[in-house]
């Protein structure tokens, strides 16, 4: 039995793990290797450089500014997405009128769920085109500007720049060496796009969780005289804790990455000012567009640092949110 067990374990793990190690871990290990070199990414020879690249990280103001941007996203993006998704899920499942069948969702909730999920299905190229049109800085052709101009908020001579705006919004900029730790409007726009795309998925996730909460718990609470708001905080939230913590980890990892948005949607002008850079897009820029002769090695060092941040974040999240599962 024991022999069969060992053979089974090895048999099941061998090929998938091998595949994974060869195609994922091995390239990443090489990345770690390159982070200790002055390689430019092209030449056959790879000069060894020790830990100098890591020391340079602390002097790289744009990297630190990008890190700050990631921190802003890490706070805002998961919270807004989770709150919106929870809110919609609650509306869809408990927001309807109570009748003989008890508490239920609003009419057409199935349709809403389907529509809300749409953005998940779009490739980033499409999302980029859509949103650059929406944010376009013209009251003739820009969706939002045209709308705001009609209402009279925006002067056609001064359309809002949105994806082209470097001014910090909500958070004041903190001068830091030659750069500023800030939360530029363009960054908020990118977060808005991310939220727009993400809410549907988490809505479906939470909604599923809510459906598995027995109806009578809601009924009972309502009959007790609790308002829907109270049932939300006293019942829904605690019982959904597991889904929320999973969502938190996923969204956190996405917030620390954010590459496709910062690379494919932020215009080149914003990438040049650094206003839209997050760690990943700055790494990409450094690897291919910097004048350092050791750019690839240096970019690899940044990426290793970024991966370390993400790893630590995910571990912390998993520890914080781990808690006894509520059985019912």
């Amino acid at each position: 039995m024991n022999h069969g067990r060992a053979r089974f374990i090895v048999g099941f793990l061998f090929f998938p793990v091998l595949l994974y190690v060869v195609y994922v871990i091995w390239p990443y290990l090489q990345t770690i290797g390159y982070s200790l070199t002055d390689w430019n990414g092209f030449t056959p020879e790879v000069p060894y450089a020790g830990f100098g690249n890591y020391a340079d990280l602390l002097k790289d103001e744009t990297f630190l500014r990008s890190l700050y941007h990631n921190a802003v996203i890490l706070v805002v993006y998961p919270i807004v997405t989770i709150l919106l998704a929870l809110f919609f899920a609650f509306m869809l499942n408990v927001g309807g009128r109570g009748d003989k069948a008890g508490v239920r969702g609003v009419a057409g909730s199935g349709l809403y769920k389907t529509i809300f999920f749409f953005p998940q299905l779009l490739s980033i190229a499409i999302v980029a085109i859509l949103w650059s049109r929406i944010f376009e800085s013209s009251t003739d052709t820009g969706f939002l500007n045209a709308l705001l101009a009609k209402v009279g908020i925006v002067d056609p001579q001064r359309p809002l720049l949105f994806l082209g705006e470097t001014n910090s919004w909500l958070l004041p900029g903190i001068p830091f060496g030659d750069t500023i730790l800030d939360a530029p409007v363009v960054l908020w726009c990118l977060i808005a796009i991310a939220v727009w795309g993400g809410v549907g998925f988490y809505l479906v996730l939470f909604s599923a969780g809510m459906q598995s909460i027995p109806r009578d718990i809601f009924e009972a609470a309502l009959l007790d005289g609790s308002t829907r708001g109270q049932t939300f905080f006293r019942i829904t939230l605690p019982l959904l804790w597991e889904q929320i913590s999973v969502a938190w980890v996923y969204l956190g990892i996405a917030a620390l990455d954010f590459f496709l948005l910062a690379y494919a949607i932020a215009p080149p002008s914003m990438q040049a000012t650094g206003a839209s850079h997050v760690m990943s897009s700055w790494i990409y820029h450094t690897a291919f567009g910097s004048s350092r002769y050791d750019k690839f090695g240096y970019a690899c060092a940044m990426a290793v640092a970024m991966a370390a941040f993400t790893f630590i974040f995910a571990l912390i999240q998993l520890r914080i949110t781990r808690r006894e599962k509520i059985e019912f």
């Binding site: 793990v17 871990i25 390239p27 990443y28 990414g41 790494i283 990426a303 991966a307």
Partner: peptide
């Protein structure tokens, strides 16, 4: 944890070695 690591690495960095 080996698999967990794969979740947190930025994909484009392993591109050239891949």
């Amino acid at each position: 944890y080996l698999f967990f690591t794969g979740l947190v690495m930025p994909i484009f960095l392993g591109l050239i070695p891949l």
